[in-house]
Simulated scan of single mutants.
Amino acid sequence: MAVKVLAFIAFLLFSVAIHASEALLIPVSTPKPEFPQNLLKKRHPGKVLVSLIVGAFGTVQSARVIESSHPQFTEAAQRAVVKWRYRPWEVAEGKPSSVEIAVPIIFGARGLHPFSPQITVGLENILCAYLNHEVHASKRDFPNEPLSKVDVFWHAQKYLAGSYTRSRVPDEAARTALFSTLEKAVPKIVKDCRNHPDRRMVGFLPKEIAELVVGGS
Results as ranks from 00 to 15, higher is better:
residue 81 V to W: 06
residue 33 P to A: 03
residue 47 K to H: 09
residue 28 V to M: 13
residue 73 F to D: 12
residue 42 K to A: 15
residue 53 I to D: 06
residue 71 P to A: 07
residue 79 R to S: 12
residue 68 S to G: 10
residue 37 Q to I: 13
residue 58 G to R: 05
residue 65 V to M: 04
residue 73 F to N: 04
residue 36 P to S: 06
residue 88 P to G: 00
residue 83 K to P: 07
residue 31 P to C: 03
residue 38 N to Q: 14
residue 34 E to S: 13
residue 65 V to H: 04
residue 71 P to R: 03
residue 76 A to S: 03
residue 68 S to L: 09
residue 72 Q to F: 09
residue 90 E to F: 07
residue 90 E to Y: 06
residue 78 Q to A: 06
residue 90 E to T: 14
residue 89 W to A: 00
residue 31 P to K: 01
residue 85 R to N: 08
residue 50 V to G: 00
residue 77 A to P: 02
residue 67 E to K: 15
residue 73 F to R: 02
residue 94 G to R: 10
residue 70 H to L: 03
residue 84 W to D: 04
residue 47 K to W: 14
residue 47 K to M: 12
residue 80 A to E: 02
residue 46 G to R: 05
residue 86 Y to C: 01
residue 26 I to N: 13
residue 78 Q to M: 14
residue 43 R to M: 12
residue 74 T to K: 09
residue 50 V to H: 01
residue 44 H to E: 11
residue 26 I to P: 04
residue 82 V to M: 04
residue 80 A to C: 01
residue 81 V to I: 15
residue 45 P to M: 04
residue 26 I to W: 07
residue 61 Q to K: 15
residue 53 I to V: 15
residue 58 G to P: 03
residue 47 K to F: 15
residue 92 A to T: 10
residue 40 L to F: 07
residue 64 R to A: 14
residue 51 S to C: 11
residue 91 V to D: 00
residue 38 N to D: 15
residue 92 A to S: 11
residue 91 V to L: 00
residue 41 K to N: 11
residue 92 A to G: 08
residue 84 W to N: 05
residue 47 K to P: 01
residue 59 T to N: 13
residue 52 L to C: 06
residue 51 S to R: 15
residue 62 S to K: 14
residue 88 P to D: 05
residue 26 I to C: 08
residue 31 P to D: 01
residue 86 Y to R: 01
residue 54 V to R: 00
residue 57 F to Q: 13
residue 43 R to H: 14
residue 92 A to W: 10
residue 53 I to A: 08
residue 43 R to V: 09
residue 62 S to R: 15
residue 78 Q to S: 08
residue 40 L to S: 11
residue 44 H to Y: 11
residue 31 P to W: 02
residue 47 K to I: 13
residue 37 Q to G: 09
residue 39 L to P: 04
residue 93 E to Q: 14
residue 62 S to G: 10
residue 89 W to F: 03
residue 70 H to G: 04
residue 53 I to Q: 14
residue 53 I to M: 09
residue 32 K to M: 07
residue 46 G to F: 10
residue 78 Q to T: 12
residue 66 I to M: 14
residue 88 P to I: 00
residue 83 K to F: 08
residue 89 W to V: 01
residue 72 Q to A: 06
residue 66 I to R: 15
residue 81 V to G: 00
residue 60 V to G: 07
residue 53 I to Y: 06
residue 55 G to W: 00
residue 94 G to K: 10
residue 42 K to V: 04
residue 28 V to D: 06
residue 41 K to F: 14
residue 69 S to V: 13
residue 29 S to Y: 12
residue 65 V to R: 07
residue 42 K to P: 05
residue 45 P to K: 07
residue 33 P to M: 02
residue 58 G to A: 02
residue 49 L to Q: 08
residue 66 I to K: 15
residue 88 P to T: 01
residue 72 Q to T: 04
residue 49 L to E: 15
residue 25 L to C: 05
residue 70 H to T: 12
residue 66 I to G: 10
residue 88 P to K: 01
residue 48 V to I: 01
residue 84 W to Q: 02
residue 27 P to S: 09
residue 72 Q to E: 11
residue 81 V to L: 05
residue 93 E to P: 07
residue 77 A to L: 07
residue 69 S to G: 05
residue 57 F to Y: 10
residue 34 E to N: 11
residue 77 A to S: 09
residue 67 E to M: 13
